[in-house]
Design a protein around this nucleic acid. Structure first.
Length: 156
DNA sequence: GCCAACGTTGGC
DNA sequence: GCCAACGTTGGC
Protein backbone atom coordinates (compact mmCIF):
# COMPACT_ATOMS: atom_id res chain seq x y z
CA UNK A 1 0.00 0.00 0.00
CA UNK A 2 1.28 3.45 -0.84
CA UNK A 3 2.26 5.74 2.00
CA UNK A 4 -0.41 8.31 2.53
CA UNK A 5 0.30 11.94 1.95
CA UNK A 6 1.44 13.95 4.94
CA UNK A 7 0.90 17.56 5.81
CA UNK A 8 3.15 20.27 7.16
CA UNK A 9 3.31 23.89 8.17
CA UNK A 10 6.42 25.82 7.24
CA UNK A 11 7.21 29.28 8.54
CA UNK A 12 8.91 32.03 6.70
CA UNK A 13 9.40 35.68 7.43
CA UNK A 14 7.92 37.42 4.39
CA UNK A 15 10.72 39.98 4.46
CA UNK A 16 13.06 37.04 3.81
CA UNK A 17 10.86 34.89 1.55
CA UNK A 18 7.13 35.32 1.06
CA UNK A 19 4.46 33.29 -0.67
CA UNK A 20 4.53 35.96 -3.35
CA UNK A 21 8.18 35.14 -3.90
CA UNK A 22 7.27 31.46 -4.20
CA UNK A 23 4.53 32.22 -6.69
CA UNK A 24 7.03 34.20 -8.76
CA UNK A 25 9.72 31.50 -8.54
CA UNK A 26 7.45 28.47 -8.96
CA UNK A 27 9.60 26.49 -6.55
CA UNK A 28 12.42 27.14 -4.13
CA UNK A 29 14.95 25.37 -1.95
CA UNK A 30 14.03 25.72 1.71
CA UNK A 31 17.47 26.52 3.03
CA UNK A 32 18.38 27.78 6.45
CA UNK A 33 16.65 25.30 8.76
CA UNK A 34 19.01 25.09 11.73
CA UNK A 35 16.96 23.16 14.21
CA UNK A 36 17.40 19.44 14.68
CA UNK A 37 13.75 18.61 15.20
CA UNK A 38 12.77 20.49 12.05
CA UNK A 39 15.59 18.84 10.14
CA UNK A 40 14.52 15.41 11.31
CA UNK A 41 10.98 16.01 10.10
CA UNK A 42 12.33 16.96 6.68
CA UNK A 43 14.76 14.04 6.55
CA UNK A 44 12.63 11.28 8.01
CA UNK A 45 9.03 12.12 7.22
CA UNK A 46 8.69 14.65 4.44
CA UNK A 47 7.99 13.04 1.08
CA UNK A 48 7.39 14.14 -2.48
CA UNK A 49 3.89 15.50 -2.88
CA UNK A 50 3.31 16.27 0.79
CA UNK A 51 1.13 19.32 1.42
CA UNK A 52 2.58 22.44 3.03
CA UNK A 53 0.79 25.32 4.71
CA UNK A 54 2.82 28.46 4.02
CA UNK A 55 2.95 30.55 7.20
CA UNK A 56 4.21 34.11 7.47
CA UNK A 57 5.87 34.85 10.81
CA UNK A 58 6.87 38.32 11.96
CA UNK A 59 4.32 39.62 9.53
CA UNK A 60 1.28 41.85 9.46
CA UNK A 61 -0.81 39.93 9.85
CA UNK A 62 0.80 36.66 10.84
CA UNK A 63 -0.91 33.58 9.51
CA UNK A 64 -1.30 30.97 6.80
CA UNK A 65 -1.13 32.60 3.40
CA UNK A 66 -1.46 29.66 1.07
CA UNK A 67 -0.37 26.20 0.04
CA UNK A 68 2.83 24.68 -1.29
CA UNK A 69 3.95 21.11 -1.89
CA UNK A 70 7.13 19.14 -1.49
CA UNK A 71 8.75 18.81 -4.93
CA UNK A 72 12.14 17.44 -3.84
CA UNK A 73 12.97 15.39 -0.77
CA UNK A 74 15.74 16.23 1.70
CA UNK A 75 19.26 16.90 0.40
CA UNK A 76 22.26 18.77 1.83
CA UNK A 77 21.80 22.48 2.53
CA UNK A 78 24.97 23.90 1.01
CA UNK A 79 24.42 27.35 2.49
CA UNK A 80 25.83 25.82 5.69
CA UNK A 81 29.23 25.63 3.96
CA UNK A 82 29.18 29.17 2.61
CA UNK A 83 30.99 31.60 4.93
CA UNK A 84 29.17 34.52 3.33
CA UNK A 85 25.72 33.03 3.96
CA UNK A 86 23.62 34.08 6.90
CA UNK A 87 23.02 30.36 7.36
CA UNK A 88 26.71 29.45 7.51
CA UNK A 89 27.51 26.75 10.05
CA UNK A 90 31.26 26.14 10.41
CA UNK A 91 30.56 22.99 12.39
CA UNK A 92 28.83 21.28 9.49
CA UNK A 93 31.20 18.98 7.61
CA UNK A 94 30.59 18.87 3.82
CA UNK A 95 31.49 15.17 3.89
CA UNK A 96 28.73 14.60 6.43
CA UNK A 97 26.31 17.52 6.20
CA UNK A 98 24.48 18.42 9.37
CA UNK A 99 21.78 20.43 7.67
CA UNK A 100 19.32 19.48 4.99
CA UNK A 101 16.69 21.22 2.91
CA UNK A 102 13.80 20.27 0.69
CA UNK A 103 12.36 22.02 -2.35
CA UNK A 104 8.81 23.27 -2.22
CA UNK A 105 6.61 24.25 -5.14
CA UNK A 106 3.91 26.86 -5.31
CA UNK A 107 0.31 25.63 -5.23
CA UNK A 108 -1.92 28.57 -4.39
CA UNK A 109 -2.39 31.71 -2.36
CA UNK A 110 -5.50 32.06 -0.23
CA UNK A 111 -7.80 34.91 -1.18
CA UNK A 112 -7.35 36.10 2.39
CA UNK A 113 -4.75 34.82 4.86
CA UNK A 114 -5.99 32.81 7.81
CA UNK A 115 -4.50 34.89 10.58
CA UNK A 116 -2.98 33.51 13.75
CA UNK A 117 -5.72 35.24 15.71
CA UNK A 118 -8.34 33.48 13.56
CA UNK A 119 -6.61 30.09 13.84
CA UNK A 120 -6.91 30.30 17.61
CA UNK A 121 -10.68 30.62 17.32
CA UNK A 122 -11.34 27.78 14.89
CA UNK A 123 -12.83 24.61 16.37
CA UNK A 124 -10.68 21.61 15.53
CA UNK A 125 -7.41 23.49 15.52
CA UNK A 126 -6.98 23.73 19.29
CA UNK A 127 -4.02 21.35 19.26
CA UNK A 128 -2.24 22.92 16.32
CA UNK A 129 1.39 23.53 17.16
CA UNK A 130 1.61 26.96 15.57
CA UNK A 131 -0.99 28.52 17.88
CA UNK A 132 0.88 27.51 21.00
CA UNK A 133 2.73 30.31 22.71
CA UNK A 134 6.47 29.98 22.36
CA UNK A 135 6.24 27.47 19.53
CA UNK A 136 9.36 28.18 17.50
CA UNK A 137 9.55 25.09 15.35
CA UNK A 138 9.75 26.27 11.74
CA UNK A 139 8.73 22.93 10.22
CA UNK A 140 5.72 21.41 11.93
CA UNK A 141 3.53 18.40 11.22
CA UNK A 142 -0.16 19.08 10.55
CA UNK A 143 -2.75 16.34 10.96
CA UNK A 144 -5.03 15.43 8.03
CA UNK A 145 -7.94 16.66 10.13
CA UNK A 146 -6.28 20.02 10.71
CA UNK A 147 -5.43 20.26 7.02
CA UNK A 148 -9.06 19.66 6.09
CA UNK A 149 -10.27 22.32 8.51
CA UNK A 150 -7.80 24.85 7.13
CA UNK A 151 -8.78 24.05 3.53
CA UNK A 152 -12.44 24.46 4.38
CA UNK A 153 -11.85 27.83 6.05
CA UNK A 154 -9.68 28.94 3.13
CA UNK A 155 -12.44 28.27 0.62
CA UNK A 156 -15.08 30.20 2.51
C1' DG B 1 10.98 47.78 20.75
C1' DC B 2 10.15 44.49 24.34
C1' DC B 3 10.55 40.23 26.27
C1' DA B 4 8.94 35.25 27.10
C1' DA B 5 9.93 30.88 25.42
C1' DC B 6 13.00 27.96 23.62
C1' DG B 7 17.34 25.51 21.96
C1' DT B 8 22.25 25.33 22.37
C1' DT B 9 26.64 25.87 24.54
C1' DG B 10 30.03 25.33 27.83
C1' DG B 11 31.78 25.35 32.65
C1' DC B 12 31.85 22.49 36.32
C1' DG C 1 25.01 15.02 33.53
C1' DC C 2 23.45 19.37 35.32
C1' DC C 3 22.23 23.86 34.62
C1' DA C 4 23.30 28.90 34.03
C1' DA C 5 24.28 31.90 30.40
C1' DC C 6 23.51 33.14 26.00
C1' DG C 7 21.50 33.92 21.36
C1' DT C 8 17.43 33.57 18.61
C1' DT C 9 12.58 33.30 17.46
C1' DG C 10 8.56 35.40 17.03
C1' DG C 11 4.21 37.15 19.21
C1' DC C 12 2.70 41.25 21.23
Amino acid sequence: MAESKRYWLMKSEPSVYSIGDLQRDGSTSWEGVRNYQARNFMRDDMRLGDGVLFYHSNAKPMGIYGVAEVVREAYPDDTAFDPTSRYHDPKSDPAQPTWLMVDVGYVRTFTAPITLAALKEIPGLEAMMVIRKGSRLSVQPVTPQEWDVVMRIASE
